[in-house]
């Protein structure tokens, strides 16, 4: 097995025009805020710039997270990839690697937009913002990819999985947010929801506002999902 060649081809398959267009559109979308600050010295902050960028970036990245694990179910290439335990593990690792690179690029796009905002409008920007944007996008991508991977291990209907993934990223956080408006719900439940990556990532990523605790928890839950998938994937029928 030529691992480097395999990863190279896997990355080539996923770094396609659609990805660059998604980042480009997200950049343009966020750029509208940069432009309005430039033109009207508007009341917006860098968090609004990254927020509007994330309006497209999180949806596009969410689609990538699900596509990367369900494309092989859709094409049936699972039948070629899953013929041994070793190949199933290679599949899992390669998907995590590829989504890390894709997420990294979305993070870089966000950082680039913040830099443009800084250059044009003189708003704050530092090297730390680049690392922060990249790290938070990578956490988002890896967590949701592993979550969808685990879901796809028990439910293998492609179209429903794609819809489920969009609902998970776009609708579920809003629904979970209701718990904060109901006083009767105990505080520990509210804390649990607030720190759950499924809630915190879609809500905090647009403003690059994940705190250390949220990032740590996301990393730990992602690791647990990876370990679960690593153990279970070789034992599942396809």
């Amino acid at each position: 097995m030529n691992v480097s060649q395999f990863f190279k081809l896997e990355i080539k398959r996923n770094l396609n025009l659609a990805l660059f267009l998604s980042i480009g559109f997200a950049f343009l979308f966020g750029g509208a805020i940069v432009y309005s600050i430039y033109q009207m010295d508007g009341p917006f902050q860098p968090r609004n710039v990254s927020g509007l960028y994330a309006g497209i970036a999180t949806v596009a990245l969410g689609v990538y997270c699900s596509k990367i694990v369900i494309a092989d179910l859709h094409y049936g290439t699972i039948y070629l990839l899953f013929t041994s335990a070793r190949d199933r593990i290679v599949f899992l690792v390669s998907r995590v690697l590829v989504i890390s690179i894709v997420s990294f690029m979305f993070g870089l796009g966000c950082a680039a937009l913040l830099y443009v905002n800084h250059a044009l409008n003189g708003q704050p920007f530092s090297a730390g913002d680049v690392g922060n944007a990249v790290l938070q996008y990578v956490l988002f991508g890896v967590f949701f990819t592993l979550l969808f991977q685990v879901i796809s291990m028990v439910y293998q209907k492609v179209m429903q999985l794609l819809i489920l993934s969009l609902v998970t990223i776009l609708v579920l956080p809003g629904l979970l947010g209701i718990v904060f408006q109901v006083e009767a719900i105990p505080e520990f439940v509210k804390d649990f929801v607030a720190y759950a990556p499924i809630y915190s990532l879609p809500n905090q990523l647009p403003f690059l506002a994940l705190d250390g605790m949220e990032m740590t928890l996301t990393a730990v839950v992602s690791l647990l999902l990876f370990v679960f998938a690593f153990k279970r994937l070789p034992k599942i029928d396809y």
Partner: peptide, 28 residues
């Protein structure tokens, strides 16, 4: 074991060369 079950499986939007290279690199 190599298999062709039910119908051929491949990445339809990629070339034959890509498909062959991809699985060649995975399987050696």
């Amino acid at each position: 074991v190599g298999s062709l079950i039910e119908k051929p499986k491949y990445f339809p939007n990629k070339s034959g060369r890509y498909n062959i290279d991809y699985f060649h690199s995975l399987f050696g």
